[in-house]
């Protein structure tokens, strides 16, 4: 119980820290935020008096901390405000963007898992054998390839040269294939590496030879001793993979002009539309903190001795 409370406290602290870091960044961004808002609101040359009025309204003149608090208030209530460029609510646009991102992220993850589990199992059948070395080489190359470059190569091959698949946009379900493949291939590379070493480590544990000498069957060993031990790194990895997925999504969406969160974010940054930027950042932080919290709680279930991942 105490462990759970301290985990919750930690999650809250991390969220507050993210909010503070985000606001600090926006506060120090070059350019006058009041001017940006005023321009967005009136879409013409605005007199200085109006800019000053906006500054007071937004609480920017009161100094860093009051401005931070008045900025944080609505966000805590789930109000992400309006775009400073279009003046429209951020939230509906964010939901639309997510509706493009989630299918991509999920199918990318599915492809990654579907490729990496068999590959890792095949590879670890004979560690050091040709299959193992092949899998390791493949995975090493996979993690060294920038996702956006892999995406470009796939476009080059399947869309430009062969003309089999559409590359740009998200009009039809077939538009999902190339982005998902790009994401899935890179995810599978890192997942294969981690799974492989996890399985090898679980197998190499000191008491296993003793079981074997006593004639315990391999199937029994795998089910009862190797798999649970390999589960802990897999749970850890899931958190890391999620981060990897979100990174991948940003790059892949830009490459394939898929109007999801990545384009939303990059477009908002380029337009200096800070309400949109902070909405994405806070949402993503919320997602990650929640997932990490769940992982920590899951650790408690798998192995209650892991009280604190720091310790």
């Amino acid at each position: 119980m105490r462990v759970i409370l301290s985990l919750l406290l930690r999650a809250a602290v991390v969220l507050a820290g993210t909010a503070l870091a985000t606001f600090t960044l926006l506060w120090h961004a070059p350019g006058d935020p009041a001017l940006a808002i005023a321009l967005a609101r009136f879409r013409s040359v605005v007199p200085d008096a109006v800019i000053e009025q906006v500054r007071v309204e937004a609480g920017f003149d009161a100094g860093f901390w009051p401005a931070f608090l008045s900025w944080l208030g609505p966000i805590l209530l789930g109000d992400f405000g309006q775009s400073s460029v279009t003046g429209r609510d951020v939230w509906p646009e964010l939901v639309t963007a997510m509706s493009y991102t989630f299918p991509l992220a999920l199918s990318g993850l599915a492809i990654g898992v579907a490729l990496s589990i068999p590959l890792a199992l095949l590879a670890t059948r004979h560690p050091g054998g040709w299959l193992d070395r092949f899998a390791v080489a493949l995975a090493s190359i996979g993690v060294a390839i920038p996702q956006f470059w892999l995406g470009l190569l796939l476009i080059l091959l399947f869309a430009v040269q062969l003309g089999w698949l559409p590359a740009m946009g998200a009009r039809t379900p077939t538009h999902l294939i190339l982005p998902a493949l790009t994401l899935g291939l890179t995810v599978s590379a890192s997942l294969t590496r981690i799974l492989r070493s996890g399985i090898l480590e679980a197998r190499g544990r000191p008491f296993l030879p003793a079981f074997r000498r006593r004639g315990v069957s391999e199937a029994h060993l795998t089910r009862n001793h190797i798999a649970p031990h390999a589960a802990i790194p897999v749970v850890t990895v899931f958190g890391l993979e999620l981060a990897f997925l979100l990174e991948g999504v940003v790059m892949v969406e830009v490459i394939f002009a898929r109007p999801g969160l990545g384009i939303f974010l990059v477009g908002a940054i380029e337009a200096r539309d800070f309400p949109k930027v902070q909405a994405v950042v806070i949402l993503a932080a919320l997602l990650f903190v929640t997932v990490n919290l769940l992982i920590d709680l899951l650790y408690q279930v798998i192995d209650p001795r892991i009280g604190d991942r720091d310790a």
């Binding site: 930690r10 960044l25 926006l26 940003v250 950042v281 720091d310």
Partner: peptide, 24 residues
């Protein structure tokens, strides 16, 4: 450690994109 958690709570490349983009 809590600062580290905060910075790790976010995929670093996305954070870098946001920071570099916002700062210009």
């Amino acid at each position: 450690m809590r600062t580290t958690d905060t910075f790790l709570a976010f995929p670093d490349l996305v954070a870098a994109v946001v920071i570099a983009g916002v700062l210009g």
